[in-house]
Design a protein around this nucleic acid. Structure first.
Length: 675
DNA sequence: TCAATCCGTATC
DNA sequence: ATACGGATTGAC
């Protein structure tokens, strides 16, 4: 047991040193830049700053900016990233040596570290939280694999790439500028039925011609797979990687390393890909930015579009925000002059979109027609579906059930809004007087802003039209059902009724012959401020899966013909709708015209927050609203130009609370939904 | 007078 | 979070 005795000997030596106050043996510092600035992985808001550590001589070769280390912090070992190596420290006390270099792989590039800092500041969160989203966990075996250099195909003629963007006014010019190392910024409305995946691939290919990489963010991994295939078709399989959260630890880290080692210059992926360490980034793109899958559900809840915009700013890249619809945020970027609007001419949109009909509820002539064997199907729907089934599949869109709808005007069905802050009205449990879900104001003597109606009602969730019902209405027809945990990706180009819930719509190779939108008021009457925008986004996405009007493609929407969202859909005018919505948000002081944040927590903590918060001038606080379980929420808002001040105030609030060990409160800046 | 405990502060 | 220091309290 020679080893054990030697260990005991060392312990005895240490003990005697402590007794006699002899300093511990001083580590020999690295010959150059002996100080590492380390971002420590701590959950405490008030410790969100770099700490300096000594790089010891044996670590000298391995410690580079971006590598993972272990450090001693307040008596325990914690993980960290080296942000930088420097010659001097500001710290007046003695520095601890780095405890261990976990890996010399520089996984946190200076660019990503900088954008993570911006994201943390924008969302009133901590760098550690953002880095947990940005850098995937290490996988040692994968890290040991060496990646062979690869060659992307660069011989695709520029004319071909420009040709893919010929439908949009200014599209080809944008591609040319990408290839010319410039940084165009556009908010793009795609042509329905066109190959948007191929267009994004072409934009990335043009950027690659200028020696620069791209990040292409899509909402779901289904979309990522399709977009990845489009990039492969154009450039071969070597140029890009697909980075999605559902890959599993090894594949995810492998894909991440392919980007950080410069082996793949194009990253296709879901929201976490917005942080990918692409070398010489030249283009950031996000598809369908209104989809709430782009909003990260973990603190500090950043949105992929905003992360990419911060990268575009930080790394001076081109930016492309695209979709069939247009988000109000996208429209705000256009109207501020930061980006141009890129869209096909109206005539082109009209040709390529399907023809849209609105079938009113009064149109339910088949309601009592038992010979058809179905209930509550307007005649128009029946006729369109019957005719379309001769030529191809028909998509039937059923809004998801199970949410709590906001109160609406019983006459015109428009969602009822608070007169003070335009929040949605709800009826608290127990049947008390209706009140605002945001500011808590109790509503008395309500009257509808649209039609002057005075009666409120909770919209009745329509009867679930099941696949079986449709099967009975159209006997001898295949019925496919997609939704929930049974999502179908693709349907054959044959007559079939395809019943799908939002987000689970299968693709049809030659397009659907028709689509039916059921219970549209459930979608456009969703609670929250995004209802109209979100309804439009879902509907144009469905419309884009349907054949063009010229090929006989039809969409029948069951709803109120006076619904302004349905009217915009009939005109295929998401930009017009977004423009009007933006005006509304400006007058109501809502995102993106204003910067909003919510603070949620135990009711007494929220009360403390209201007293302690050092808000920028002209900021206002709505609430608090009791949200049950002893918890409460406030909404804080300020003008866009003071947004940074609001975020800073909230960050300081969190730092102060964490330093005083007060109960945590949740801060969300620009939340997707105000509840 | 000394130790046990509480509170506040720094953490490199 | 810990760890540490200074103040505070309590028992002899």
């Amino acid at each position: 047991m020679a080893e054990q005795s030697s260990t005991q000997g060392q312990l005895a030596l240490l003990r005697s040193r402590v007794r006699r106050g002899t300093p511990k043996p001083v580590a020999v510092a690295a010959p150059e830049l002996p100080i590492a600035r380390v971002a420590v992985d701590l959950p405490l808001a008030h410790l969100d700053r770099p700490f300096d550590y000594l790089v010891t001589e044996p670590m000298h070769q391995q410690v580079a900016p971006g590598c993972r280390v272990k450090v001693r912090f307040a008596g325990r070992d914690v993980d960290g990233f080296v942000l930088d190596r420097v010659a001097d420290t500001e710290h007046p006390g003695r520095l601890s040596p780095l405890r261990r270099v976990v890996s010399a792989e520089p996984v946190l590039t200076p660019e990503v570290a900088a954008v993570a800092r911006l994201v943390a500041d924008r969302y009133a969160g901590s760098l550690a939280d953002v880095l947990r989203l940005a850098v995937p966990p290490r996988h040692a075996r994968v890290e040991a694999e060496d990646s062979k250099p690869t060659q992307a195909r660069l011989d695709v003629p520029l004319e071909h790439l420009m040709g893919r963007w010929s439908a949009e006014v200014g599209g080809a010019a944008m591609v040319a500028r990408l290839a010319d190392r410039q940084g165009p910024r556009a908010v793009w409305q795609a042509l329905p039925g066109a190959d948007w995946e191929g267009q994004l691939a072409a934009a990335a290919a043009a950027t690659l011609r200028s020696g620069r990489g791209s990040i292409l963010c899509v909402p779901s991994s289904r979309d990522a797979t399709r977009l990845g295939a489009a990039v492969t078709a154009l450039l071969g399989g070597d140029a890009h990687i697909v980075l999605t959260a559902d890959l599993g630890p090894a594949s995810r880290y492998r894909a991440f390393l392919a980007a950080s080692r410069g082996r793949a210059q194009i990253v296709v992926g879901t929201r976490a890909a917005a942080f990918a360490p692409v070398r010489r980034l030249g283009l950031v793109a996000v598809w369908d930015d209104g989809d709430d899958l782009h909003a990260e559900p973990r603190a500090p809840y950043p949105h992929a579009r905003e992360v990419l915009l911060l990268r575009a700013f930080q790394e001076q890249t081109a930016a492309l925000i695209g979709g069939h619809g247009r988000s109000v945020e996208g429209q705000a970027l256009v109207e501020s002059g930061w980006a141009v609007s890129l869209a096909p001419p109206r005539s082109r949109l009209r040709e390529s979109a399907p023809q849209i009909h609105v079938a009113g509820e009064s149109d339910r002539e088949l309601e009592r027609d038992s010979s058809v064997g179905t209930a509550r199907m307007p005649r128009r729907v029946f006729e369109v579906v019957r005719d379309a089934l001769v030529t191809g599949p028909v998509l039937v869109h059923v809004p998801r059930y199970g949410y709590q709808p906001a109160l609406a005007c019983s006459r015109c069905r428009q969602p009822a809004r608070c007169v003070r802050c335009i929040g949605p009205l709800g009826r608290p449990r127990g049947g008390a007087a209706p009140s605002c879900r945001w500011c808590g104001a109790v509503v008395e003597g309500w009257s509808c802003q649209h039609c002057r109606g005075v009666e409120l009602r909770a919209p009745v969730v329509g009867s679930l039209r099941t696949a079986e019902e449709w099967g009975r209405a159209f006997p001898q027809t295949t019925v496919v059902s997609s939704g929930g945990d049974h999502v179908v990706d693709e349907v054959p180009d044959k007559p079939a009724v395809v019943v799908a819930t939002p987000g689970a719509e299968p693709h049809a190779d030659s397009g659907y012959a028709a689509a039916v939108l059921l219970d549209t008021w459930l979608t456009s009457g969703l609670p929250g401020l995004r209802a109209s925008e979100e309804a439009m986004r879902r509907w144009v996405n469905i419309g884009a899966l349907v054949r063009s009007a010229g090929e006989g493609g039809r969409v029948v929407a069951v709803g109120d013909p006076a619904d302004p969202v349905l009217q915009a859909l009939v005109r295929w005018d998401p930009v017009g709708l977004a423009t009007r919505e933006l005006v509304g948000r400006e007058s109501a002081r809502l995102t993106p015209a204003a910067r909003l944040a919510t603070v949620t927590g135990p009711a007494d903590s929220v009360a403390e927050v209201m007293a302690a918060l050092d808000l920028p001038r002209q900021a206002e606080v709505l609430g608090p609203v009791e949200i049950g379980d002893g918890r409460a929420r406030i909404v804080v808002r300020t003008g866009r130009e003071r947004g940074a001040g609001l975020s800073r105030a909230l960050q300081h609030l969190q730092a102060a609370r964490s330093a005083r060990k007060l109960p945590p409160v949740r801060v969300q800046v620009d939340p997707a939904d105000l509840g």
